[in-house]
C-alpha cells in the first residue's frame, strides 16, 4: 500500500494528506487509528503523558488511546441498530465517564449546530441520508476534546452551508490545540483548513528504490 511514510504532526496544526485516489491516504489514517496493521515502522503518539508506539501497542492500549487521545471521523457511519442519533454522538463522552445527561446535552448542541433536524435526534441513523449520517458522524468525532483528530473526508456529502460549519469547527479545534490530520477531497475546504499538505505520492511503494 504505502512504504516509508514519515511525517510528524504538532498540536494546533491541521495537516492534510494529498494525492490521487488509491494512493493510500485512508490507509495511513487507519494505520494511525489502529484499524490497519503496520508491517514496519513506528507511530508515536503522546498518550497519557507517555510516548506510545501504536504499531506495537497491545489492543487494550489502542482502545485507551482511542478513548482518550485519538479521535476519528470516518467517511461512513457504521450504524448500530436501535441506538438514537443523540446517543451515537454522546457515546464517546459517556465512554470517558461523562454523565449521561451532560453528554446528551452536548450531543444535542452539536447536532443543532450542524443543522440536523431535531425530529431525527431520537431515531437510529441507519435510515438517514448520506449527509445526515455524515453530520452525526462529525458530531460524534468532535464532541470530545481528544488531542489528536483524524478526519476522513468529513465534508464529502455536505452542502456549502454545513461545510462552512465544519470548517469553523475545525478552526476551533486548532485554536484549542488539537492536532488534526485529514483527507479532504473538496479543494475549497482543503485550502481553508490545511496548514500544510502531505503528499502521499512520496510514500508510494518502490518510489524510494527507483
Amino acid at each position: 500500500m504505502v512504504a516509508d511514510v514519515s511525517f510528524s504532526l504538532s498540536a494546533g496544526e491541521c495537516a492534510v494528506l494529498g494525492g490521487p485516489s488509491g494512493a493510500g491516504k485512508s490507509s495511513i489514517l487507519k494505520m494511525i487509528y489502529g484499524s490497519y496493521a503496520i508491517d514496519s515502522g513506528q507511530v508515536i503518539v503522546t498518550h497519557d503523558g507517555n510516548l506510545v508506539d501504536l504499531a506495537t501497542a497491545d489492543p487494550r492500549t489502542v482502545i485507551a488511546i482511542r478513548r482518550d487521545t485519538i479521535g476519528y471521523v470516518s467517511q461512513f457511519l457504521r450504524a448500530v441498530p436501535r441506538v438514537s442519533a443523540r446517543d451515537v454522538v454522546a457515546e464517546p463522552l459517556i465512554a470517558r465517564g461523562e454523565a449521561l445527561e451532560t453528554a446528551r446535552g452536548r450531543a444535542e448542541k452539536l447536532l443543532a449546530r450542524l443543522n440536523l433536524p431535531e425530529r431525527l435526534w431520537d431515531l437510529p441513523p441507519a435510515t438517514f441520508s448520506g449527509g445526515e449520517q455524515q453530520r452525526v458522524n462529525i458530531a460524534r468525532g468532535f464532541i470530545t476534546d481528544h488531542p489528536v483528530l483524524l478526519l476522513d473526508e468529513p465534508t464529502a456529502s455536505l452542502d456549502k452551508a454545513n461545510r462552512e460549519i465544519v470548517v469553523s469547527m475545525i478552526d476551533e479545534k486548532k485554536t484549542a490545540g488539537v492536532a488534526l490530520l485529514g483527507i479532504f477531497h473538496d479543494q475549497d475546504v482543503r485550502d481553508v483548513v490545511a496548514d500544510r499538505i502531505i503528499d502521499v505520492i512520496d510514500f508510494a511503494p518502490g518510489r524510494k528504490a527507483a
Binding site: K30, G34, S35, A37, V62
Partner: peptide, 12 residues
C-alpha cells in the same frame, strides 16, 4: 488475534 476492527478491516 487483535483489535476487532483491525482483524476485520485488515486481516493478516
Amino acid at each position: 488475534s487483535g483489535l476487532t476492527d483491525r482483524v476485520l478491516d485488515d486481516p493478516q
